[in-house]
């Protein structure tokens, strides 16, 4: 048995040296679904010859997993480029001084509402926050939603707002309404029996299966249900007449030793080619920059007007922090 342990130790040491020698690859932390992002990163490798070593987020650690990881690693940065599936978490990293500025050609093609004025992060290919409803039991209109949300809510679902895009949604509400009104609203939802679930995909499952008639989710989860032939419809959530577009975001991590390769990847991700590809993928992301809209699928094209009507995200870091502090006091007693 001891001999086997020795063997294991030797093997481990060998692997240590192997990994220490492998430092030429560009390390990308990617919170976007690996199903879609892996292909794009491979294409980048093929086009540029730059080797990419991705680390994907999982539902097990949520999108906050990689953001927290970058914060924990700040003294020994491992990541060169962060591809986040939302923008406010990335903006919070800028607030902590963990991002480097870069304003390349990709930065210029993205509207100002979706990027950092200093160029520390840039948004691209967005999801839309939507009401999802079961078409067999609910007719989805803004009037019906208003009526439903004014009554008992045990047939309505929302994801736990501690993480993910629901946290971004709450941060926007905090900005639009103020924290007091947000707290009052959420407490009212809870008192009237809203079903709080683990994530947006659970909300989609609850509504698609008919367990709930209405829920808050994102377009990517909604399209999963559509592709599975489930009876669902969606309507954008509006706050102060503005839509909640949650873009992917890309940023270069401070302390990167591969700055040139990192810039090349940022330019590639912010290109029209990638935005188009993400719009054609199963998750149907909405292109934010200029693209040939004829090549964008119809079910994404219908959301095009909301790009002009989107809630600006570039200055919400303080609201996110306020919201998160309050939610922690609610959930982590």
């Amino acid at each position: 048995m001891l001999a086997l342990i020795e063997f294991a130790v030797i093997l481990m040491l060998g692997l240590v040296f192997y990994f220490q020698n492998q430092d030429e690859a560009l390390v990308v932390y990617c919170a976007h679904d690996s199903v879609f992002s892996e292909k794009i990163l491979k294409q980048f490798e093929q086009q540029t010859g730059i080797k990419v070593e991705p680390r994907f987020d999982t539902e097990a650690t949520k999108s906050l997993g990689l953001t927290n990881l970058i914060i924990r690693e700040k003294d020994h940065p491992q990541c060169d480029v962060f591809w986040n599936n939302q923008a406010l978490g990335t903006a919070a990293l800028k607030d902590q001084g963990l991002l480097e500025s870069y304003q390349g050609p990709g930065y210029d093609r993205i509207p100002a509402a979706f990027k950092d004025p200093d160029g520390c992060w840039t948004g691209f290919a967005a999801r839309l926050r939507v009401y999802i409803a079961n078409t067999e039991s609910y007719s989805l209109t803004y009037e019906n939603v208003e009526t439903t949300l004014a009554g008992q809510l045990n047939q309505v679902a929302i994801a736990k707002p501690l993480y993910g895009t629901t946290l971004s949604h709450f941060a926007i509400l905090c900005d639009a309404w103020g924290l007091d009104r947000l707290q009052e609203w959420y407490h009212s939802l809870q008192e009237r029996g809203i079903q709080v679930t683990s994530g947006n995909s659970s909300v989609k499952n609850l509504v698609a299966s008919g367990a709930c008639i209405l829920g808050y989710t994102d377009t990517d989860d909604y399209f999963v249900a559509v592709d599975a032939g489930q009876p669902v419809s969606a309507l954008p959530v509006l706050v102060e007449e503005k839509a909640l577009l949650i873009p992917n975001s890309v940023a270069i991590i401070k302390g990167t030793k591969r700055r040139k390769q990192a810039e090349a990847l940022v330019d590639y991700l912010l290109s029209a080619e990638v935005e188009l590809e993400l719009s054609q993928s199963q998750s149907r992301q909405i292109p934010l920059g200029t693209v040939n809209w004829d090549l964008v699928p119809d079910d994404v094209q219908k959301y095009r007007p909301y790009i002009q009507q989107a809630y600006p995200l570039s200055d919400l870091v303080q609201q996110r922090k306020l919201t998160l502090d309050w939610l922690k006091s609610e959930y982590l007693k």
């Binding site: 679904d33 539902e59 999963v224």
Partner: peptide, 28 residues
């Protein structure tokens, strides 16, 4: 195991359980 692998495994040494977990979430 998903949790330990997803947090501690090196970037290029991830396990198949982590990928499966991601696929489950997105209904693939």
């Amino acid at each position: 195991d998903v949790t330990i692998s997803s947090i501690l495994a090196p970037h290029s040494g991830m396990t198949s359980a982590v990928r499966l977990y991601g696929l489950m979430h997105y209904g693939q």
